[in-house]
């Protein structure tokens, strides 16, 4: 319940300050526009459009998801949070907020992307949905943990994508592969290995996050 209360506080704060939403929306619009302009009248392959889809998601996540902890640090309210809740509660609440933000952001990206790119046609929707859901969970967990690490650094903006890239790389490569399979006529059963990798990634990241967060949060 405490985590949910923290999530509600963050949501109310976000709706009033528009700290992350504004930058996310602008970033999504700008990134998709840049890709559209750079393609021009060229016809891109189906698989390239699938890869670009996750590139847009990666960079959008880098622009907005660090806010969960960075905004607290910049406003000086980190200490206040330390005084009212345990590290587990803080991480759970922030993770819940980032999960909602990632899903909302990526659904908007997916809808915009499907509408604007003719080549982006998903033939196996259930496979894509499984990959999308597991991928979003992985992105939210990893980016929440990394945000807590970089929040106290002086060059947060640079450090966040740099630290995130190696951690999110195996997730992104698997997601690109699964999207390619979903755009192809691959059956669900032949993608079990990739789905298992995504599931394992999520489990490992959530376990590592809760183990490490206590140390990150205190010092």
């Amino acid at each position: 319940m405490s985590s949910y209360a923290l999530f509600k506080k963050d949501l109310a704060s976000e709706l009033r300050t528009r700290y992350a939403i504004n930058s996310l929306v602008m970033f999504i619009v700008v990134t998709i526009s840049v890709i559209l302009f750079s393609i021009g009248n060229e016809k891109i392959s189906d698989f390239l459009s699938g890869g670009l889809f996750w590139v847009v998601i990666f960079f959008s996540a880098m622009s907005g998801l660090s806010r969960a902890f960075v905004s607290e640090e910049e406003r000086g309210t980190t200490l206040t949070l330390q005084l009212i809740a345990s590290p587990t509660t803080i991480f759970s609440g922030k993770l819940l907020f980032n999960l909602i933000l990632v899903f909302a952001m990526n659904i908007v990206i997916a809808l915009l992307y499907s509408a604007l790119f003719e080549a982006f046609v998903i033939k196996n929707l259930s496979l894509f949905l499984y990959a999308f859901i597991l991928g979003n969970i992985g992105i939210a967990i990893a980016s929440t943990l990394i945000a807590s690490i970089i929040a106290k650094a002086s060059s947060k903006g640079t450090l966040y994508p740099v630290l995130s890239f190696p951690i999110l790389l195996p997730l992104m490569l698997t997601l690109i592969d699964l999207t390619k399979q979903a755009m192809d006529t691959t059956t669900f059963s032949s993608s079990y290995v990739e789905l298992a990798i995504l599931g394992c990634y999520d489990v490992v990241m959530i376990a590592v996050s809760f183990m490490l967060f206590d140390f990150i949060w205190k010092d």
Partner: peptide, 10 residues
């Protein structure tokens, strides 16, 4: 403490 900050937007 002077460094305990409350939320300005609330």
């Amino acid at each position: 403490a002077p460094y305990v900050i409350l939320y300005d937007e609330f």
